[in-house]
């Protein structure tokens, strides 16, 4: 399945968008590391869905708008995005910070959202569980900590790094800090309004997640009692990469 790349202008911001496949719309919301390339799981999802993979404002090839100061700004932007593209009954798939973003969107307005898949989502605090301090990790440490199966990390680390990639890494890191430095990777007021999410929610978590430990899933389950939780064994922070087939099966089974 081939993805087309385009640039979309919305809210005064140019956003890089990759889109491929046919079917109901599926909006993939990437995490802190961005979505610089089309990954195998996106191709697989595109066999059944119209998959949209934007790079968030502040990441990758997208602009860094002045209005982007917190996660709420990004949530409103994506609600505008759903409206601007007239996406209806969209499946949201949000990984890590993208999961947090999906929740912030959904507590505000679920009218264009059919269901939500959260993959190792950030967004809440959980007693006794601490996210890893991604800001104190070197790029190599961070890459290694993303995966349980280190062959994925090795492959990523073996790629040559161009100056453009360094620029994008620094840009992404800046935006992540802007939105998630403090409170670290969560919004303390979000739990108050999670009951507003009336669409089905699936939570997928790598059992060996070293960035956001899978113990966070218990707190999510408490706050979203109707959500289904699936823990993926032998898997780190990015099940969609590390266990792509299994991950896509979970999405297909859940979202239809």
């Amino acid at each position: 399945m081939s993805f087309a790349q385009s640039t979309l202008r919305l809210d005064g911001c140019n956003v890089s968008l990759r889109r491929g496949g046919k079917g109901a719309p599926l909006l993939y919301l990437h995490g802190a590391g961005g979505a610089p390339v089309v990954l195998p799981f996106m191709e697989q999802l595109a066999e059944r869905y119209d998959v949209l993979v934007p790079e968030h404002p502040g990441w990758g090839l997208s602009d860094e708008p002045e209005w982007l100061e917190n996660i709420h700004d990004l949530a409103y932007f994506y609600l505008d995005f759903l409206r601007a593209l007239d996406l209806k009954n969209a499946v949201l798939v949000g990984s890590s910070m993208g999961g947090w973003l999906a929740l912030e969107m959904a507590v505000r307005d679920c009218s264009r959202i059919r269901s939500i898949v959260l993959v190792g989502p950030a967004g809440i605090a959980a007693p006794g569980v601490q996210p890893a301090d991604i800001f104190l990790m070197s790029p190599e440490e961070l890459t290694r900590n993303l995966f349980h199966d280190q062959s994925f990390a090795e492959k990523m680390l073996a790629q040559p790094i161009t100056p453009e990639m360094v620029d994008i890494q620094l840009k992404n890191r800046h935006t992540v800090a802007r939105l998630a430095w403090e409170p670290r990777l969560h919004d303390p007021f979000l739990p108050k309004w999670l009951h507003r999410i009336e669409v089905p929610v699936k939570i997928v978590w790598g059992a060996e997640d070293r960035i956001l430990p899978a113990a966070f899933a218990n707190e999510f389950k408490r706050l979203l009692p109707k959500a289904e939780v699936e823990i993926v064994p032998q898997c780190g922070h990015l099940p969609q990469t590390e266990k792509a087939e299994q991950f896509c099966d979970i999405v297909f089974r859940f979202a239809g």
Partner: peptide, 18 residues
């Protein structure tokens, strides 16, 4: 101290960081 500690994002311009 390591560079990640010395220069958190936004503390300096990205040009200075590079």
């Amino acid at each position: 101290m390591p560079i990640e500690m010395l220069l958190p994002p936004g503390y300096t311009s990205r040009e200075s960081y590079k």
